[in-house]
């Protein structure tokens, strides 16, 4: 399985760095984060310390849209091109293929995140930000990104149409993102707690982004990745029985 993971992972990485959509997303991310960073910086002058988590916060909302765009290809394209049949008849377990693709996507995302370090260097050179706060926000957004990418990949495994895969996973991520607001509208306190507990926004904005690394939030994202990958493996296996 390790071998298959590594081989699939390498192919995905090359694929990301040669695909136009990945570069478009990278450009969009840098543009958005750049604008917001500048704005925050301008408003902070003479009034408050600059927010070291501002860039990860931009990532947190935009990943609702960008994670599906980055992952819609992963399985849908294989099914459309027919290579899915070859993958399924290669002597490699489904789990190896799923892990390889997931780590490929997550690594590309990590590179995107790393590009945004440039803002942190700017901050460092003009002020003295709380590096612990910065680190916590980045750890949080890294895990958060992994979870959204896993969701995107799951929907790619469910269809052979990339547009449908992206669209449905955007809706799913949007609902998870809005869990906070939805929780406020629910009268039943226990139900509201559960809905808010599942909220992507709540797990990131009120903890990692505030400089807090809480075990429960780390467990939430790690657990979400694990569960969604497990379901994806099952979905891929189920194609044998159709």
């Amino acid at each position: 399985m390790m071998m298959a993971t590594w081989i699939v992972f390498r192919r995905e990485i090359v694929q990301y760095f040669t695909s136009p959509i990945a570069y478009l997303i990278a450009a969009a991310v840098l543009l958005l984060t750049g604008v917001v960073f500048n704005q925050d910086l301008a408003m902070s002058i003479g009034t408050k310390p600059a927010n070291p988590a501002i860039v990860p916060q931009v990532f947190s909302f935009t990943m609702v849209f960008f994670a599906p765009l980055l992952t819609m290809r992963l399985f849908a394209e294989e099914k459309r091109e027919g290579t899915f049949e070859l993958l399924m008849t290669a002597p490699a377990p489904e789990s190896g293929i799923v892990f390889g693709k997931f780590f490929g996507a997550w690594s590309f995302y990590s590179v995107l995140l790393a590009l945004s370090f440039v803002y942190q260097f700017i901050l460092l050179s003009i002020s003295s930000p709380d590096l612990g706060h910065t680190l916590s926000a980045y750890i949080g957004i890294w895990l958060y990104g992994g979870a959204t990418l896993a969701v995107g990949m799951l929907f790619s495994a469910l269809t052979e149409n990339q547009v449908i895969a992206a669209f449905i996973s955007m809706i799913a991520l949007m609902l998870l993102w809005l869990g906070d607001q939805a929780g406020r509208l629910i009268a039943n306190i226990d139900a509201a707690r559960i809905v808010r507990g599942l909220s992507l926004q709540g797990r990131f904005n009120s903890s990692f982004a505030a400089g807090l690394i809480r075990a429960e939030d780390v467990a939430f994202f790690a657990g979400m990745i694990t569960v969604v990958l497990y379901v994806t493996i099952r979905v891929i296996e189920s194609y044998r029985w159709r």
Binding site: I7, E85, L86, L87, A90
Partner: peptide
């Protein structure tokens, strides 16, 4: 398979090499 399964964005060499490695 009946419909030749290909990765259009890969080179000929990389494609064959990928399947060779995946098959051990």
């Amino acid at each position: 398979p009946e419909r030749v399964p290909l990765y259009p964005d890969m080179t000929v060499e990389a494609y064959v090499s990928f399947w060779a490695q995946l098959r051990g």
